[in-house]
């Protein structure tokens, strides 16, 4: 085990931004997960603070309401010693893509070191990342990706089962609109897990099987022999006749309850990215079942993973720490110093 901050310096993560899981290698994901483990330990200590990012500025730029993710990033930044600013922008008052770029340029002029961005439009975070000189972390863009969620889910699973490869993971619910599902499908696939998705066809995106998943309409079939059951949140406005006829019917066929869970492996674990709709996508007692539910663990891992991501993305700013050489072969510095090369 390396100390916090040290592992990042070996360039195990060779990208300027973290915009998505797609395109990452298994080694890069493992590196981030390994690094996160250290921060789990740090966060459990009495004194949770390091000075690793002292003097660096992080802006949490949220164009969409989020308490949980924003708080998790804020804590992560503060525990690493950075200055953290939260900016919430009501996207409804800003209509044009140009304004997004204007916002980016304005913020860029303030010289932040990391921008953590959530936006309701798929691709908006990438667009913004092309206009700034600092590192950008995608904290969720539309229905596209939510990479830190997938990483924290991966870490949670790995800590529970010791591995990701070969596991059977069922992702259940509103796959169509879910960036969590897309990032997890990518990550679990890259790491060698077998991914299943289960939902009514109205909540499945077209050609989803092309992402390398098995598609099910029936929960019990999908959960058969599963190691992990990952539930997704169903938005209220989709429950009453548009995508799903009613909450009653949804819970009956797609809500996770003890009966459906019997189809999974006896020690299968339950996950949910939160916030939960109890009694709609998940039975309340199951969500609180300390033996089966990893939901609270996921929240804890969220902070650790975000610390690891901040660490990894600021390695250049902090300079290479030679002490890290022991961890593994050094990657050519040009990979990491590509910052600013992209327009």
């Amino acid at each position: 085990m390396t100390a916090p901050g040290l592992a990042a310096a070996n360039l195990g993560y060779a990208h300027r931004h973290l915009l998505g899981i797609e395109g990452l290698s298994a080694d890069e994901i493992s590196f981030l997960l390994d690094l996160s483990e250290n921060y789990v330990e740090l966060s459990r200590r009495g004194n949770k603070k390091t000075a690793l990012l002292r003097g660096l500025t992080i802006i949490n730029l949220f164009f969409e309401n989020s308490t949980r993710t924003r708080t998790s990033f804020e804590l992560a930044g503060k525990r690493l010693g950075a200055d953290v600013i939260n900016m919430s922008v009501a996207w409804s008052s800003i209509k044009k893509g140009e304004t997004l770029i204007d916002t980016a340029m304005t913020l860029n002029a303030m010289h932040p070191d990391v921008l953590v961005v959530r936006h309701p439009d798929s691709g908006a975070v990438k667009l913004l990342s092309e206009k700034v000189t600092c590192a950008v972390i995608n904290a969720g863009d539309g229905s596209h990706e939510h990479p830190t969620q997938a990483l924290l889910d991966g870490l949670t699973i790995r800590r529970r089962t010791g591995r990701l490869e070969g596991l059977i993971v069922a992702i259940c619910g509103d796959i169509l609109h879910s960036r969590v599902a897309r990032s997890n499908i990518q990550l679990l696939g890259i790491m060698g897990a077998r991914v299943r998705v289960v939902a009514p066809p109205t909540l499945l995106p077209a050609a989803v099987e092309r992402l390398g998943v098995e598609v099910f309409f029936d929960m019990k079939e999908a959960l058969k022999d599963c190691d992990i059951v990952m539930m997704l949140r169903l938005q209220t406005e989709r429950m009453h006749g548009t995508f799903v006829p009613s909450t009653r019917e949804y819970f009956r066929f797609y809500g996770l309850d003890a009966d459906k869970l019997k189809a999974a492996k006896p020690d299968a674990s339950i996950m949910h990215p939160g916030p939960m709709n109890r009694g709609i996508e998940i039975d309340s007692e199951l969500a609180d079942d300390i033996d089966r539910s990893l939901i609270r663990e996921q929240v804890e891992m969220g902070v650790a993973v975000r610390m690891a991501c901040l660490d990894a993305l600021t390695q250049d700013l902090r300079g290479h720490n030679l002490a890290a050489a022991e961890v593994g072969p050094e990657v050519g510095p040009e990979v990491g110093s590509g910052a600013g090369a992209r327009s």
């Binding site: 109205t202 009453h240 006749g241 548009t242 006829p245 009653r248 019917e249 009956r252 066929f253």
Partner: peptide, 15 residues
């Protein structure tokens, strides 16, 4: 197929 035959909201087809 839709509630009140209004052609807007799907019914509880499963139930």
């Amino acid at each position: 197929a839709t509630r009140r035959l209004e052609g807007k909201e799907i019914t509880e087809i499963g139930l």
